[in-house]
Design a binder for these strands. Structure first.
Lengths: 199, 199
DNA sequence: ACAGCCATGTAACTTGTTACATGATTTT
DNA sequence: AAAATCATGTAACAAGTTACATGGCTGT
């Protein structure tokens, strides 16, 4: 939902045309995750379908301007005032992968962890180098870019720390103590979700 | 891709029928992200379409067993041996949101950060409490669950740290120094993606 | 003239996700 | 007998993403 809502939030500042929206999004996210132009028009159509934006005027150059509606403004306000729920809400690809790999008898978890750790660490170093070149950040665009890179650095650090943590915990017990065989008995549902949802 | 590949990896251990697959997935991920049953059959159909699994025998109870194919096995091997690329590859909802919010003139970024920080911190405390109840983890299922919760703890910690970091950096300069007005000039593409991809 | 960017759009597709229908079996 | 769980499936949709088609304009 972040692309959709980001575009909506930009439109909340004033009407834009499609191509312009991409540039606005790219600048504001430090061009870190460049957006395919087609997706803009796609998303605009869907936002219009949902009544959050509407086609506005066309200027002399032929630019098709889109403007936000009242429901759209409400949507943006709700987005900005409510936190992003990730921990319990969204699936964590790496956590899933490692949990599954660790509980599968035939899998060399240690190797999976090693490979991931190496890649994550390499990434972290590159990120730190990139972050370093951007500390002199003068303009707002550089600052925005710098914040995004920092978030990646923090996330990568946490990832490496967690990998080490997992490696330690797994090394304390033999591989077979972790493995879960395919149950031939009737499957029972596991314990109910214990992780709080905080919604 | 993680659900799809997780199911495939489980099938790599031996044939399963749909309903069983859900239980296997749930147990192995600590029932943290319970899977809608329908998605299983959905995913199996798509895996079959892609030639990664095939319908196998039906037992006396009427259970439809699915088995992995050679291409499927190769896919699992590739998945396990290659790292998950998140930092530069996948979009970070919160980073996008904050970067956009911070560069939008009319937005009270500080309030957004405060709200997020409060929610993330509350989540973190709940997670730590949940993790604490699980440290005595005896069985493999408890251990798997514990690892997943730990990953959430580490991620939440990093999130809070980053939020504080952002707050500090933003408080150093006035709000207007961060804002990026909608450009009326011809949009130019920003700097090319500087963040390394490590692929 | 030709290459390349500006600009709008369309069509197809991916994974994930939910709601619903339908029976069989099991438990209470 | 009723309720719950087991088990398989279908239909629809969301958001993201890409490839492609089509013009106009601009710089070389």
């Amino acid at each position: 939902m972040s692309v959709r809502l980001s575009l909506l939030a930009i439109l909340d500042q004033g009407p834009c045309y499609g191509y312009q929206l991409r540039a606005e999004f790219d600048r504001r996210t430090g061009s870190t995750w460049p957006l395919n132009v087609g997706q803009i028009y796609n998303t605009l159509d869907r936002l219009e379908r949902d009544g959050l934006v509407e086609k506005g005027a066309v200027d002399a150059q032929g630019h098709v301007y889109w403007q936000i509606t009242d429901p759209g403004r409400a949507e943006v306000a709700a987005w900005l005032s409510s936190p992003v729920e990730r921990a319990a809400g969204t699936r964590d690809e790496l956590a899933i992968k490692l949990a599954v790999a660790a509980t599968l008898p035939g899998v060399d978890v240690a190797a999976v962890i090693r490979a991931q750790r190496q890649a994550s660490l390499a990434q972290l170093h590159e990120l730190r180098a990139a972050a370093f070149t951007g500390v002199d950040a003068g303009g707002p665009e550089e600052l925005a870019w710098s914040l995004v890179v920092d978030s990646m650095v923090f996330a990568a650090e946490a990832e490496v720390r967690w990998l080490d943590h997992v490696e330690t915990r797994l090394s304390q017990r033999p591989q077979h103590a972790m493995a879960i065989e395919l149950s031939t008995e009737k499957p029972k549902r596991g314990r109910p979700v214990k992780v709080p949802t905080t919604v």
